[in-house]
Structures are given as structure tokens and as C-alpha cells.
Design a protein around this nucleic acid. Structure first.
Length: 443
RNA sequence: CGGGGCGUAGCGCAGCCUGGUAGCGCACCUGUUUUGGGAACAGGGGGUCGAGUGUUCGAAUCACUCCGCCCCGACCA
């Protein structure tokens, strides 16, 4: 993509309403624009990142679940049947259609997915089943803030598992647990599972996945050893291995403010391993058994011919919130520093002297070669001052920068710089494309 | 929902108290000179002053009503 053709309205100055780094940087880098309180439009750069995160989530979830797509608008009736129509209260956006039929804009999908299941799955032979979808949700938050971190409209991946018995259901829960660790790892994040409150979703087993960040809205308490643990891809059908891994991860004390047991915390974690920090919640697992399957009559007939209600769990990841969380973790005073896996472009070319033919020819040439090898590259071909082009490139956070100017062209070289490192290296023009490709593949 | 604050050009703000032709910086357009960390000069465009009602010869400015947005508290991916 050439910058001159790319819709990227960056801002030099800080919007006064944006209080946290991620919000400020998302506005300044032209990723989003606010449309209403807690409601945002996604501009090309922001949408690219959103799609990248979505792909990572999809790739992993496909290993243990099947993707569907449910509507944003739901019939209020199923919410009345589950009893949540009133429980959810004012957070739920209620709508009347032309026939005065009551609809809602979905804040989550337990009811709807349960209805789909109950209407279409009748036999124990069709479970276990796990379905997920990635869809916009709306929760009429009392106070939306911090940009997409706590928007009212947000993109969420939510998965739902259906099992015959509690043992199988826990296995589904555990698979999701490990799947989440892998998802966040792929985004360069160190997410930690925290024992959690179940909130209005309900149930008795629940973990939040959180990312440590100054601006996080919840406080967590945990054992620092949890950060030293690693996760690998595994065979999800190996029930005992899955359970063993989850047991291992949950053996380290971690809790939110709400579930903190101070005595237990102090007895299990030595004082120099205790971490008490702000964190951003980016994922949540719930096991809630038959809480929805009973009222919504989601049952299957088992081997003995008896009708049994399925045991369910639900599992969310805040896709749009993750962007904010990633920026909170990966930024500096100049702007965003994207992890490569989610970066909108892998490489940015900064032509420092657009109106010198030599610089422009070489820039254009490198740009074309990188494009033709499938590298996502943004070429800043505008006729702007070098300073402003460099500052802009730093702001939008592309991981690799190729800087092309007279200084190094004298040596037949261009400069390669990693966004989050200070050193830049001169590389011969004839090698630059291969060098960059090697670095990108290696990561 | 309680408490506080703010709505004037795309962004940041002044003007309002004390009513009298709507301003500044950045951004944008044209031209020239520039170019290694957000360039300089010259010229230019852009506003139903959040909306409505009232007071007045006259309202961005005063009064009332409504709306929107932000911040602080109790809920949540």
C-alpha cells in the first residue's frame, strides 16, 4: 500500500478526551473515530489489526470448535424465558420493531445458541458440541470509557459448549482454557488465568484471562511464578493431558479483588512472589451446567432413551478490547509498537527525499519487490518532510522500517530499523528484500 | 443513576463576565524555497458558535428547556 493512496488520518496532537495511551494512540494513528459514546468507526488501519486478531482467534478456535454466525438482533422472548430479560437490566438495549415486537441488541448469546442447539440437536450422538461466533455486541454500559477498551459496542468471540455430563463439560472447559493461553501467546501477550466471579452469566466455575497493564480496570493478585510458565500446542482430545495442564496452571494462586482470600494468598505465595497489579480482562470462561439448558429446554436423548439436559459453558474473548490491551502493553512515547502477528503491515518504507529521483526509484523498487513476495508493506511516498514521515511511521507502529535517504545511499545502502529497538543497520540495496523477508519469517 | 465539567472550523483553544460584522495555533489548498526527527515564506478556503424558545433594535455572549460529550464513584469481554 502506498501511503499517498491510503486513508490514514493521523493526528499530530493529542485529542483531549483520550486519557489512556491506547485510546490516544488509536485516535492519533487513524485507526478509529468515535461515532457516539462508546461506539467507534474502524478506519482501514484499525480494521486491519482487528481482522488480524480475529484470524488468530479463529485459527485456534477452529481446533476445538465450529464457527457459526448469529444475528446482532435477538427476540426478547428467549431472554424472558431464561429470566435474564430483567436481570440484565438497563445494560441491554431494547428495541421495538414496526409491529411493536420486542427485540434486543445482543449483549451475549447464551439464549440464542441454546435455542439453536435445542431445535436441532436431539441425540447424545451429536454431543459434545462446541460452537463459536465472532460478532458485535452491545452493552449499554453506565460509563463507557478508554476508547474501545470499554466501548458499548464491541467485537467479541463467544463460544458455547454442550456436553452430556459434567465430566465432559469440564473437559470442554479445560480445552478452552489451553486454547486461550495459546491465542494470547500468539499475540505476544502474557495472559494469566485468574479465578473469577461468575457475574450475571452465572455458574460455578469461572476464570478470567487478564493482561497486566497500568491502565487496567481490575486489580489482580497472583504468584509471579505463573509468568514463567509456557504453553504448547497439544492434542486436545487427550483428556488427562489437558486436565494436567490446567491443573498445573491453576496451581498458582491468582485472584481478582472480588475473589481474593487474603489468608490463602499469603499462605500460598511468599511475599517476594506476590504480584498485585492492575490488569485488563481480555477473556472469560464460564461453566454453568444446566442454567440455560433447563429453562430453554436444551436436552438430548441418551443411550438409555432418557431425556437429559446438556451441561453448558460459555467462553468469551474481547476482540476489540484486545487491540487496546495490546497497545497498552506495546507502546512508547512515540507511538504503537505492534507485535508482528497483529501488525497491520510488517514493513514500512520511509522515503526521506521523495523528490530526489534516486531515492524514489530505489524506494519504489524495494516496495514492488516486497509486495511481489507477499509481504504486507506500507510505502510512505508522500512529499513530506523527513521528520514528519519518521514520526508518523513510529506512531502507527509498523514493526520494521526501511529508511531510504541520501546518507546511506552513498554507500549503496538503505537502513533497516526495528520499531521497538534503537539500533538501525545499513544494508546493501541488493540484499534488503531478502534480509527483511528472513527477519519476518524468523519471528 | 448520583456528583462535577464542557459544547465556537478536522484537532486544540480564545472570545462570553461587561450583548454590537467570529478569532488564534495546528491541519487543509496554491505557489516558491526546502528536506535525516512533526520545515520557511507568501497567498487562500473552511463556521446554521450543540438545538430550541425567550429577553433585546441587536445574542456565541443574558434566561429557560432539551440534547450531546467528558471526568469521579457502584457493574462488565
Amino acid at each position: 500500500m502506498k501511503r499517498s493512496n491510503f486513508f490514514l488520518p493521523t493526528l499530530k496532537e493529542n485529542p483531549v478526551d483520550a486519557k489512556v495511551a491506547s485510546h490516544r494512540l488509536m485516535l492519533r494513528s487513524g485507526m478509529v473515530r468515535q461515532s457516539s459514546a462508546g461506539i467507534y468507526s474502524w478506519l482501514p488501519l484499525g480494521l486491519m489489526v482487528l481482522k488480524n486478531i480475529e484470524s488468530i482467534v479463529r485459527e485456534e478456535q477452529d481446533k476445538i470448535s465450529q464457527q457459526i454466525l448469529m444475528p446482532t438482533i435477538q427476540d426478547a422472548k428467549i431472554w424472558k424465558n431464561s429470566g435474564r430479560y430483567s436481570d440484565y437490566g438497563k445494560e441491554m438495549l431494547k428495541i421495538l420493531d414496526r409491529n411493536k415486537k420486542e427485540l434486543i441488541y445482543g449483549p451475549t448469546n447464551e439464549e440464542l445458541v441454546t435455542e439453536i442447539f435445542s431445535n436441532n440437536v436431539l441425540s447424545y450422538k451429536d454431543v459434545p458440541m462446541c460452537l463459536y461466533h465472532i460478532q458485535w455486541k452491545f452493552r449499554d454500559e453506565i460509563r463507557p470509557r478508554f476508547g474501545v477498551m470499554r466501548g458499548r459496542e464491541f467485537l467479541m468471540k463467544d463460544a458455547y459448549s454442550f456436553d452430556l455430563n459434567e465430566d465432559d463439560a469440564i473437559h470442554a472447559y479445560n480445552k478452552m482454557f489451553i486454547n486461550y493461553l495459546n491465542i494470547f501467546k500468539k499475540m505476544g501477550l502474557k495472559a494469566i488465568p485468574v479465578k473469577a466471579d461468575t457475574g450475571p452469566i452465572g455458574g460455578d466455575l469461572s476464570h478470567e484471562f487478564v493482561i497486566l497493564a497500568e491502565t487496567g480496570e481490575s486489580k489482580i493478585f497472583c504468584d509471579s511464578n505463573i509468568f514463567k510458565q509456557s504453553i504448547d500446542n497439544i492434542d486436545y482430545e487427550d483428556k488427562s493431558l489437558v486436565s494436567k495442564i490446567v491443573k498445573h496452571w491453576t496451581s498458582f494462586y491468582s485472584s481478582t479483588q472480588e475473589t481474593l482470600d487474603e489468608n490463602l494468598y499469603h499462605s500460598l505465595v511468599s511475599s517476594n512472589n506476590r504480584i498485585q497489579k492492575n490488569a485488563i480482562e481480555v477473556g472469560h470462561l464460564f461453566y454453568f451446567g444446566t442454567k440455560y439448558s433447563e429453562p430453554l429446554n436444551a436436552s438430548v436423548v441418551n443411550e438409555d432413551g432418557n431425556k437429559i439436559f446438556v451441561k453448558m459453558g460459555s467462553y468469551g474473548i474481547g476482540i476489540s478490547r484486545l487491540i487496546a490491551a495490546i497497545i497498552e502493553v506495546f507502546h512508547d512515547e512515540k507511538g504503537i509498537c505492534w507485535p508482528e502477528s497483529v501488525a497491520p503491515f510488517k514493513v514500512g518504507i520511509v522515503n526521506l527525499r521523495q523528490n530526489e529521483k534516486n531515492c524514489s526509484d530505489i524506494s519504489q523498487n524495494i516496495y514492488e519487490k516486497l509486495c511481489s513476495t507477499g509481504v504486507a508493506v506500507l510505502y510512505d511516498d508522500r512529499n513530506e518532510g523527513a521528520g514528519s514521515k519518521l514520526a508518523d511511521m513510529d506512531l502507527i507502529g509498523i514493526p520494521w522500517q526501511i529508511r531510504i535517504g541520501p546518507k546511506s545511499l552513498k554507500n549503496n545502502c538503505v537502513e533497516l530499523k526495528q520499531r521497538n529497538k534503537n539500533d538501525e543497520v545499513e544494508i546493501n540495496i541488493s540484499n534488503i528484500v531478502n534480509e527483511v523477508r528472513k527477519k519476518i519469517v524468523k519471528q
